[in-house]
Design a protein around this nucleic acid. Structure first.
Length: 300
DNA sequence: AATCGTTTCAACCGCGTTGGA
DNA sequence: ATCCAACGCGGTTGAAACGAT
């Protein structure tokens, strides 16, 4: 089923908004409230599509929008939240009053990503061998949180790429009878696992699982995701070979562990949300006081 | 002063989700 | 159950601003 363009009619204006257009939009929304964006342009006397109006309002004209540079607290919050939820800009924006998802996304892509890369590079140049191995080592060993963070994401990405190539090359050898019903969900599981396992959430899980039930740790999580334990950090990234990846999805009995792991991740995020809401919007600055990375000292 | 390369960010695009008919 | 309009989101684009030569 195809989708019709939101505004394919000719004569609809695009591009930067003029002050008069802004005024029309603001006046209308203040009088009638946001909503029904499809009809809004006509009712407000604007020669724009509704989508454009909504975007202009939510990203620029809304009265509660906070302009100006990001504070160190906001910076650190973005860093932490991104480590947990990834590129869920709207979720991150929800924790930063007055900031839009678009603004945070732009800030991440232009400022933070660059710094993270530089920090990761600084770690990588210290060693030898494949860059991936260094990233993996950095992910677990670096004393620099920012470099660790970058390395974690990069490691997960490299692993996902490796698996993708494996899956595509071995797809013809998998019989439809065994693979068809569950393959998609079970292939997705390791990526979720890896992302979480390589994050601070994973750290929490490792600690909590060992303490509480004795069935946690890499083995349980790896089994839960249907991955041999060593592949939590695979060999060329510091562990085993990828040939064993064909065993993904064979450990159905570990669903409970996997779910528990995901639940823990959500609890972590909920906890963070609670902390932000109940006590402080931002993590304490002194948490990062001993971080040697430029990322934590971006503001002179 | 002119040119070129880089950075920034507002705006657009396309896809997924949702809810009502 | 199905269709589809409306909405929201994340990725991408492109023009303006800025800096270097």
């Amino acid at each position: 089923m195809g989708r019709t363009p939101c505004c394919d009619s000719k004569g609809i204006k695009k591009g930067p908004w003029a002050p008069e257009e802004d005024k029309l939009l603001v006046d209308y929304v203040q009088a009638n409230g946001p909503g029904n964006w499809r009809m809004l342009p006509k009712l407000a006397g604007l020669n724009r599509c509704g989508k454009s109006c909504r975007l202009r309002w939510t990203n620029y004209l809304r009265p509660d929008i906070k302009r100006g540079p990001f504070t160190p607290e906001e910076h650190n919050s973005i860093l932490h939240l991104h480590a947990i939820v990834g590129n869920k800009w709207s979720m991150i924006a929800a924790q930063l009053p007055g900031r839009t998802d678009n603004e945070i996304k732009n800030y991440w892509n232009t400022h933070m990503k660059k710094q993270l890369r530089q920090d990761a590079l600084a770690v990588a140049v210290a060693g030898e061998g494949a860059a991936a191995a260094q990233l993996a080592r950095a992910a677990t060993a670096s004393s620099c949180p920012a470099a660790r963070h970058m390395a974690q994401w990069e490691t997960a990405r490299l692993e996902a790429e490796a698996r993708l190539s494996l899956f595509s090359s071995s797809a013809t050898t998998v019989t439809s009878a065994t693979a068809s019903s569950s393959s998609s969900t079970e292939h997705a599981a390791p990526d979720i696992f890896l992302r979480l396992w390589n994050s601070e959430v994973g750290d929490s899980f490792r600690g909590a699982a060992v303490q509480q039930q004795g069935h946690g740790g890499p083995e349980a999580c790896a089994a839960a995701a249907g991955v041999p334990a060593q592949q939590a950090l695979p060999a060329e990234l510091g562990g085993d070979d990828y040939s064993a990846a064909s065993t993904y999805g064979t450990e159905a009995a570990a669903d409970d562990d996997y779910q528990a792991f995901l639940d823990l991740a959500m609890e972590e995020f909920a906890l963070l949300q609670g902390r932000l809401g109940a006590f402080s919007v931002f993590p304490q600055a002194d948490v990062f006081a001993d971080a040697p990375c430029s990322l934590f000292a971006p503001f002179e």
